[in-house]
Each structure stands twice: as structure tokens, then as C-alpha cells.
Design a protein around this nucleic acid. Structure first.
Lengths: 195, 195
DNA sequence: TTGATAACCAACGGCAACGTTGGATAATGA
DNA sequence: TCATTATCCAACGTTGCCGTTGGTTATCAA
């Protein structure tokens, strides 16, 4: 039977992603990852190093996916609303990523992988907002980097504290999710609107 | 030498709060808590039960403090802005609480301590918002429970993802914190404003 | 003073996790 | 065919943690 190194690595990464997402770095065991991947523990160490390295690799892979990410189509209040809506959708469809980032934020507050790259990514968006403010398409009431951040907040908080969202809305139906999205879009428009 | 049961309990609770805040439920060890409290491990088990119980007790105590909480003084856009500003201040001054709640959200998504009580607390605020909308003081563009939630998002996200805030603003100075606060206040006003 | 109760602690058993190792099995190239 | 290299895995040593226990010291009431 032929080797399938790439396949084995993939199975390990997928299992690791599931476990880390669910239980976090400390709650996850290498034994469990190996078992879920149908692989011997030693393979995990040999391919990916220790637990911390594996967590970082998993997180990086997921971050790379979102980096493709969500573009801002138009820098008008309407466009900003749609952007926030898409952020909301993305968070809703990928609760994994939110959880991973939170685990990382709590467990390893110091080191951010690919920090420079992410800074550049955010800076690009912020600059675009800034230009749209200068040209008068967007309100300049908020500094562009704060506008950028607060849009993430509006769209992301629902996935960060789902219990609070649940307690506050008394509802978890599909219709409620649609209402939440509409509220996020409306709120984003208001942050962007010129008087 | 006289017993000091209350004092011992307090020392344990304080040490536990520090450790859980820093390392989360899985990263914290009972041994370490006992050592930090200057107490034998057995005392911890005898007074507070197992690790999970202790975590819940610590979290409840902190939540009780915030339940005193932050009132909304006036239900006008200005009042809402000030409310959001105070929420921001509270989060900024008590990063412990945010971290504890996040650990809990990630580690035990199912069980929320004092759920009914917290529901009532949120419902009270939501109702007040609803009335202010009916009377025309606040915009009715957002359902009151969503307005409530989004205000928490604007004020809280900075403490939830401090690395992202740092990368996006390239600044951690006291002045930047004040700017962030101002942006939160302005954003909250905009969510509340009538046209 | 003495007996009962409650606070305290050192040491332990058991277990689960980390990371490793020594050897077996498959692939490859000469 | 045989030597070499890479993949794989069962079993192991070690560590660290959970939760408990057996016994000691302090307090207090009779």
C-alpha cells in the first residue's frame, strides 16, 4: 500500500482544527487528535512538532482563508452596510474561526502570528475608509481605524457571546438570524452616514 | 493562633480569580491556586468543591459586582451615548471580567449561571429602550433588544480582541483609549438618533 | 482538665497527558 | 536482488494534576 503523506497530514490538521476549536489549546490532547485522525500520535509530533506549533499552524491556515476575505465593494453608507452584512454572514457560517481566534487571544495574548501581514491588511482597509471620508462619501465623525474596528464589533459580537445574544433576544430561529443581520446592516449604515 | 476561615476563603477566591482569569479553567491547577493563596490544597476542595465549582463561584461573584451595574440615565441619543461610554470604561477598568466571561463562553457554552436573573436584567433594559422608542426619544430603526446588544458590542469588542484593536490603531496610549471612548460614544449616539 | 469538633496539612494513589524510542514495514534506486 | 531511506506504530518513561486520606494541631464547651 502506497504512502499518503499529504492525506495523513490533512487528516491530522482537520482533526486538530476540530479539537482546538471545541476544547481550546489546554483542553485538547495530542492523543485525541491522533485517534480522531486515525493515526499514531508519533505522526503528529513528527509532522507538526509539539502542541503549540500545531495550534499555530491550524490557526494560520484558517486565517489565510479569511484573508482572501471580504472586500468592501463600495465606500458609501450603503456599501458599508453590505460589507458589515457580509462580515456577519461570514462569522455566522464559520463559528470555528471566531472560537479559534478567541482561544488564541485568551491563551497567548502576546504572540500574534503573521502580525505584520495582518497589520497591513487592516491598514489597507483603514486607508480606503480614510479616502472615502476625504472625498465626502463617508462621515468623518469617526477615525477611519475606529470605523473599521467598530464594524467588526457590530458583526462579530454575536458569534463571540452567543449566550448573551440568546438571552437578550430569546430567540435562535433562522428568522432571528436574518433580523440580526438586518440590524447589523442598519447600524453600519448609521456609522457611515453623512448628515 | 485563632482560625480565620473567612480570611482563608477570601485568599483562595482571590487566588482562584487571578489564575482563572489568566489561564482559564483548563490551564489553571488547584495546586497553584492553593500555593498562591498560601494554603493547603485540601482546604480548597473542602471549602469550594472541585475545580468546576470553584470557577463558577468565582464567576458568579464577579458577575454580581457588575449586576449592580451601569444604569442608563436618560433614554435620549445623548444618554445612550453616555451609557455606551460608561460600558466602555467599565470594560476597560475590569479586563478580568471580560476574560472570565469569555473563558466561560468557550469552555462551557451550555450552562450559564444565573441564567434567569441575567435574562431579567437584559429584559429590563430592553423594555426601557422599547418605551423610549415608542415615545419617540429613540430611533425605532433597530429592535430594542438588538440596540441593547449592539451597544454592548461597540463598548466591549475592544477588550475582547485587544490584539486586533492594537494592530488596527497602532497605538496603545492613554490618549488612544480616550479616542476610542469618544468613538464608542459617537457610534452609540448614531444608533440611537432619530432622523 | 478532658472530650468533641473543626481547621489544617503532608503525603499518597491513580490517572492522563506529553513527548520519545526502538524497531517493523513499505518504497526506491542501484 | 539488496541496501538505503522514509513512513509508520506499539510501548515506554516521565511528569504533573486531581481529588482523597490519615493524622495533627487548635478551639471550645462541659
Amino acid at each position: 500500500m502506497a504512502w499518503d503523506v499529504a492525506g495523513t497530514k490533512r487528516k491530522i490538521l482537520d482533526a486538530a482544527a476540530r479539537e482546538f476549536t471545541q476544547r481550546g489549546p489546554d483542553g485538547t490532547t495530542m492523543e485525541r487528535i491522533a485517534k480522531l485522525a486515525g493515526v499514531n500520535k508519533e505522526r503528529v509530533y513528527n509532522y507538526f512538532g509539539g502542541k503549540h506549533e500545531l495550534f499555530e499552524i491550524v490557526l494560520r491556515e484558517k486565517l489565510a482563508i479569511i484573508a482572501e476575505a471580504i472586500p468592501v465593494d463600495s465606500f458609501t453608507p450603503e456599501g458599508i452596510g453590505e460589507y458589515a452584512g457580509k462580515l456577519f454572514d461570514y462569522n455566522y457560517e464559520h463559528p470555528d474561526l471566531v472560537r479559534l481566534v478567541l482561544w488564541e487571544a485568551l491563551s497567548f495574548p502576546a504572540d500574534v502570528p503573521e502580525e505584520q501581514q495582518r497589520r497591513d491588511y487592516y491598514a489597507g482597509k483603514t486607508n480606503s475608509f480614510g479616502e472615502a471620508q476625504t472625498s465626502g462619501d463617508l462621515s468623518a465623525a469617526l477615525p477611519p481605524e475606529h470605523l473599521n474596528f467598530l464594524l467588526l464589533a457590530l458583526a462579530g459580537y454575536w458569534s463571540v457571546l452567543p449566550q448573551v445574544a440568546r438571552m437578550m433576544t430569546n430567540d435562535q430561529s433562522v428568522a432571528e438570524v436574518a433580523r440580526r443581520r438586518a440590524s447589523v446592516v442598519e447600524a453600519a449604515r448609521r456609522l457611515a452616514a453623512t448628515p
